[in-house]
Structures are given as C-alpha cells and as structure tokens.
Design a binder for these strands. Structure first.
Lengths: 233, 233
DNA sequence: CCACCTTTACGAATTCTTTATAAACCGCTT
DNA sequence: AAGCGGTTTATAAAGAATTCGTAAAGGTGG
C-alpha cells in the first residue's frame, strides 16, 4: 500500500498483552510500530520518533490518555485514536474534546481497528487547514472566497451560522467532533452547554443538504458525543 | 528559488522564541527577514523597509495584529499572513475582514508556513488589479474611462458613490461581500459600521438597474452578511 | 437651486433562540 | 428476549431579536 517509507504508529497501552497484539497486527500490514506503556513514556518516544498516528488507551498509570491528548496537541496535530472501555464515557468525551480524532470501544476486532487506522491516516493531510480558497469533498464544494456551498452540483443557500457549522464540519471531515467543540467553535466559549442549538441547526442543515434528511449520509450523529461529517459512501 | 533580489518578509511576534524560529526557517529558504515585537514597531520597520510579505501574531502588547492589519492596509497592499491560536475563529474572521490574506493556526509546522508563504507571494502580483478599460458582464457594460454604465443596453445615470459601489460589486461578481468590506472599500475604513448607508445606496442602485427592484436579480442580499452581484440568469 | 450624501423612521423579512412533543437509544430488570 | 424508566435526539413551530427595504427629511457644497 505504501511507497518508500512506512507510516509510523505509536501504540500506548499499559497492558502488554494488548500492546503486543496491536503491534503484531499493525506490523503485519506494513506499519512501523513503537509502543509505550504510559503517557509519560509516550511523550518521550514521540519527541524522538514523531509518529504519523497515536493509538492510546485511556486509563494508565503515571499519565493517562486524556492528559496525553492534551500534551500531544500542544506539540503537534498528529491524529489520535483513543481506546476506551465501557464506563469511561466521560473520559472518552473529554479526550475527544481535547482533540482526539476518533475512538474505539473495547473489546474490538483487529479488522475494525485497521479500518479506523486507514481512515484516519487517509484524511490526515487533508484535515489540517490548508489552501484556503476552496474545498472540494465528495459531493460538496465550498468556495470560501465567494462564501457559497454546492451540494451535488447545486448551490444551497445557508444562513451565517449554518454556513459556519457546515464549513467547520467539512474541514474536519471524518473526525468525531464533540458538542462542546462545535458549540465553542461556532457560538463561542459561553455556549458550550447549549446542545439544543446544535440539534436545531444540524437538523436545518440536513434538510438543506441531505438527500433524505431522516437518514443522513453526510452529517452523522455520534450518540452521546457529537457529530461527524462523512465524505465517503 | 529566487532571482536577483530576495523577497523581504517582516515577522511580527512578541514571543521571541517563535520569532527566532520563523526567522531561521525563512532565512534558510533565501528570504530576507526582519522582526518586530509589536504592531507599533512593525509599522516603523515597514516604513523604512517595505516588505513583500508580513507575518503577524494576533495578540501582542501595544498594538495587536488586528489593528496592524488595518493600519498596513491604509499604506499598502502588502500580503499579510496572520498567526492565531486555536479557537479564535471569531478573531480570525475579523483579521480577514481587516485585510489579512491568510491565517495559520498555532501550533503549525514550518513546512506548512513555508507553503502558505509561497502561495501568498505567488498570488500577490496577480492581486493588483489589471489595467482594464471596460467590463462586460451579463446584462451590464461598464466603461471605466468614460465612467458610464449601461444595463441591458440602456445607459443609466449613477452618482459617484453609486458608481463606485456598482463597479466594486461587478468586479467581484459571484462573491459574497460583507458589509464591512463594502463600506471600507467605498466609504473608507472609518465607516465600516454604517450599514445604513449600504441599505440606502443598494436600494437606489436597485431602483436604477433592476427590472423589478422589489425582486432583485442582480444585487442579491445575503442576510446578516452582505451583498452579492449575480451575473447569471 | 440642484444634485448628492447623510440621517432617521418603521413595517417587512430573515435569522436566531426557545419551547414543546414525538421518536430513538441506552442500560437495566424481569 | 421483552419490557421499562431515563436520556438523548429529531422535528416543528412559536417567540424574540436583529437586520433589511423604503421613503422621506435634513444637510452640504457648488
């Protein structure tokens, strides 16, 4: 799949059993893998060996996955996938708030993990905000200069908040965006609890851009967490 | 990369650490670099040493990046790249309103910055509007030398401000132009809040150029944002 | 005096916010 | 596996806030 250089993945988990399974599964697919057993160690490894993707457990001795996310985000935009177990819902959302890209709930199959890894790595270069004149993504085209949006070739008229929200989603397509993050980005830091705003505006956006607003293909709901823009399919 | 003379870049940031990193990275690529630690100083340097590009942080003592953008725009069309911290979406928009050409969110890699610098400099010469004597667009014909406008073949008499406004709209047909931008362009930077002027003049223009002023086909309203000139249909 | 710009005023239109209700979802018990 | 509270989500629609369109009065300079 890859060319000259293999993608580097840093796996962070204190359970050596799991770490070993992941290392094997990922190495077999041609990824270069390093492991660390807590956040502290992960940061050290990362500074020496800048990975293209970090997969981290949440509960660990020394420094947990949540703190690791925060620290990593100060250094880099490296994609992060969080592993969580049932009952860590709160921490999971906090990790996503802190900038994690996606999550997987234990127990999971190696195939599911590999799929997430591929998806996350695929959009990594696109995810960061670059060339800011226009964005084409799947069925959508956004002209940032003209402030126009076209879905499947047809221009749709959006109100200011609808436009801001959609552009924010599209720019981070594939990434899980928490309610808090979205509200903070569009309405500002004082409205991070007003999830009802989001529901209303997501609903309006779906009415305008989805083929069947009742069965959304683009703006997907992540129950209890937030939303995610889906470019594929 | 460059020919005889190196491109001059002015870096404005109060964090000397960052300023130093930028200076090093840019110098290594053959750019000539000067630094300033706030807007005040930047203006001084700029008047003595007209840079081809200005890179400025937003939050600084004395004079912030926002004000610097406004002041620079009164002096020159020099391209400006703004550095902002994650989550300052609002300020970013203000900076672009104030005339910034691009923005980068901290933290960023030096490669990303260099890419933006190249892109911005590449656009720069094109940005200066070409010498054009007349414009034909859809049902409209503008003779810039004679200062006359014809709609659907018939000449319409416009007052100076009406003329300026219409030409500004036509030149940027298809783009949504914010109230702020339009007011700044026609009335100057001190009137960017007087949206009532716009309402009046757009109304007068519509009466003169629209077939049915109550249902505008050319000058379209983008509620809460501004106006847009529609060339098609 | 005339053309133009500025300012004011208010109903109409649009968007944003808030509320209400039904539907969907989760974990839990039976 | 089915049923059942407790949440969360989807949707419509009322209410509030802001802006837009328009006419007209007031001001300015030649």
């Amino acid at each position: 799949m890859n060319i000259n250089e293999a993608q580097r993945i840093l796996v962070v988990d204190d359970e050596t059993q799991i770490a070993r399974v992941l290392r094997r599964g990922l190495s077999a697919r041609g990824y270069e893998v390093q492991t660390a057993s807590d956040g502290e160690e992960a940061l050290n490894v990362f500074s020496q060996w800048p990975a293209n993707l970090v997969i981290t457990d949440l509960s660990m001795p020394q420094m947990g996955g949540l703190e690791l996310c925060r620290r990593l985000r100060k250094l880099s935009q490296v994609p992060i996938i969080v592993l969580s177990v049932k009952g860590e819902e709160r921490t999971k959302v906090e990790a996503l708030d802190a900038g994690a890209d996606d999550y997987i709930t234990k127990p999971f199959g190696i195939d599911e993990l590999l799929a997430r890894v591929r998806a996350t790595l695929r959009r990594a270069p696109t995810a960061t905000e670059r060339e800011v004149k226009e964005i084409t993504l799947g069925d959508f085209h956004v002209d940032l200069e003209a402030r126009t949006v076209a879905a499947r070739g047809e221009e749709v008229h959006l109100t200011p908040k609808e436009y801001e929200l959609l552009v924010y989603l599209i720019r981070r397509a594939g990434k899980v965006l928490t309610h808090r993050v979205l509200l903070g980005a569009i309405w500002g830091g004082d409205y991070t609890e007003q999830t009802e705003y989001l529901r209303v505006f997501v609903g309006q956006l779906r009415k305008k851009i989805e083929v069947d607003p009742a069965k959304p293909r683009y703006i997907l709901t992540e129950p209890w967490i937030g939303y995610r823009f889906n470019a594929e399919s």
